[in-house]
């Protein structure tokens, strides 16, 4: 049982690390600010959660695991608020998202 948890935690840590690097690549590759926001979303949600979950499994039951759970909770509350604030501020600042096709503009829908 302990070995399964150990192996699972390594899987979580490595997957989390991979997602983090993916988000970093995405933030460099994507063409405009609003698409980069999505790439940053990957690192803010699943990457952070997986790495912290992996650490929780290594720590076992106790105060340390509870603190890690608190960090996950904080990040999952603050992440979307920060992303929303960024998008709103960019719109407010006059930045227009690059759209795939002209009819994707909301004036129509």
């Amino acid at each position: 049982m302990a070995m399964i948890v150990d192996a699972l935690s390594w899987v979580f840590l490595l997957t989390g690390g991979f997602l983090g690097v993916s988000g970093g690549i995405g933030i460099l590759r994507f063409p405009d600010f609003f698409t980069r926001l999505h790439a940053a979303g990957v690192t803010d949600t699943l990457c952070a959660a997986l790495i912290l979950l992996g650490l929780m499994m290594q720590a076992g039951w106790g105060l340390v695991a509870v603190k890690l759970a608190f960090i996950i909770l904080f990040l999952s509350f603050t992440g979307p608020v920060a992303a929303h604030a960024l998008a709103r501020a960019a719109l407010h600042g006059g930045l227009m998202p690059l759209l795939h096709r002209a009819e994707d503009d909301p004036s129509k829908s």
């Binding site: 840590l13 490595l14 989390g16 690097v21 988000g23 970093g24 690192t43 790495i51 992996g54």
Partner: peptide, 9 residues
């Protein structure tokens, strides 16, 4: 390994 991935990011 995890710390390296975080640093690269």
């Amino acid at each position: 390994a995890a710390i390296l991935a975080v640093l690269v990011t």
